[in-house]
Design a protein around this nucleic acid. Sequence first.
DNA 1: TTCTAAATTTAGAACTATTCTATATATGAT
DNA 2: ATCATATATAGAATAGTTCTAAATTTAGAA
Lengths: 153, 153
Amino acid sequence: MMKSSAEQAAIEKRLKAAGVRPTAQRIALARFLLNGADHPTAEDVKKWADENFPKMSLATVYNTLALLVRAKLIKEVKLPHTSRVIYDDRVSAHYHFLDEKSGKIYDVDPSEVEVKPRLKKNASVRGVEVLLRGRWESESRQIRERRGKTHVQ
Amino acid sequence: MMKSSAEQAAIEKRLKAAGVRPTAQRIALARFLLNGADHPTAEDVKKWADENFPKMSLATVYNTLALLVRAKLIKEVKLPHTSRVIYDDRVSAHYHFLDEKSGKIYDVDPSEVEVKPRLKKNASVRGVEVLLRGRWESESRQIRERRGKTHVQ
DNA sequence: TTCTAAATTTAGAACTATTCTATATATGAT
DNA sequence: ATCATATATAGAATAGTTCTAAATTTAGAA
């Protein structure tokens, strides 16, 4: 793990480079969002803040999330399985995979899914969003067999 | 256009076949949803009801939408450009196209978009959702030229 | 028909996630 | 240190949906 102070300095640099004034609250949140959080919701971010920063308000969490999105340091992701917005530190275009067992979201590189629209209609496609659903960790044979077996009393 | 009474009878039949008791409210809403509405939101449906059915409550609109979804007569669609749920009378698997100019949603048959996941990770994909964004009606050359031209005083 | 039990509809309260508002606090430039 | 501006704060407001409890309607029995 990176030393906390060095990490803070690096984050501060990234904020400045993106035109965001590095206040204490912003550095703390950016550190969480850019080095550690895994597709958190605003609620997840607030929870982290409550445990790691004194008296940060929910408004600051939302303000900062919006600011970091505008600065292109994080991306807003809206997926159909929840009404909560998810924040993603991967800012380049990519797709998502929803593990239906755990509810976890995984990023998928566009190169890993071939998408070729061949619309009958003469429309111009300017963007593509893809959500894959399934099991991210495929079950081992042993686990599958155990699950399949009826419990014997 | 189909004669209203015949249409009602047909709708009533479909509701019964799907195991839904055909009350007056349900017949009216199903008629709108299955023959005429184009990806309406709950608000659109309520608005139609206010203009075409006496005193229907918002709760009935939501109850009936949920009921028709459970009965697989319509499908719930959640898209990232709005926080409102959209209802679709096409119930088989398909993709969507968002016209970014009009905000309108169009259904796209899965045969019209080739999607081939080739994940590095050994995951099992059980479903794919695709949203295309762009212009559904591609502009004619004339319109494009007119739009491009600076207005001369 | 009338009665009755269950299903449905209703109005409005409650809820969730987010945005807004007004005030207080902190910051950087002078 | 002062001042103007930016930021942070608590809480109110909002949007969309779901819940609750009471009233109404329905289908079937008597």
